[in-house]
Amino acid sequence: MNFLASIGRMTLDFLRSVGALFVFLGDAVVSIFLPPFYWSLLGKQLMRIGYFSLPVVGLTGFFTGGALALQIYSGAARYGAEAFVPAVVMIGICRELGPVIAGLMVAGRAAAAIAAELGTMKVTEQIDALTTLATNPVKYLVVPRLVAAVISMPLLVAVADSVGVFGGYIVSTGTLGFTGSIYIKNTVDAIAFNDVSSGLTKAAVFGFIIAAMGCYHGFHSKGGAQGVGAATTSAVVTSSILILAANYILTKLLFE
């Protein structure tokens, strides 16, 4: 009986959390279109989430592109298909690895930072203080982060794609014996609009997930330092899982 009761409690808790998340996100999305608009806060968040994520996204993109070139080359060599390395690296980076790796890196960086910042504001009553100062905390804190993440992620993924393909180029021409001009020609010949646009679409969705999870867990953190730590962990874990799940769903929708 206790076992059944605990399953019931867990189910109810889960449904309550999902309901609270949807109410929170609904409020945030509606608030995007209602004044006042905090343009300077949006600018700050574009810098924090977008600009300051450039090094980490660029570096991971570069190494991922390089490693992908090595793997594709060793696999393709079994069938004498080495000439397809540039095309497969480009498709792999633009459609999948660019958005997913960038999404996960930004989730680790930005979702954690958002959850920690808002969580600290929550436990030190700064969010309540906003309310008493006749300022809607969702509009003031959530909307700029949400919009900035949705704008920044496609730009970051465009950088990750470019640097990733460049990483593949460097490795292929430096260690795999490809000629630079042929590598570039094969890449350009293979590229299709959908390869890039699908990755950028995914990136915008991942940006929404990252900011939404950071804000939600930050807003709902409880207790002191431990609660903020737990909120930060939850934000990174849930946004990473949701990014991978959304990636599968979007791949199915965009390519079938």
Partner: peptide
């Protein structure tokens, strides 16, 4: 309303 919070709740 105005409110003074226990921990001041100033914006960092």
């Amino acid at each position: 309303f105005g409110m003074l919070f226990q921990g001041a709740a100033l914006f960092d």
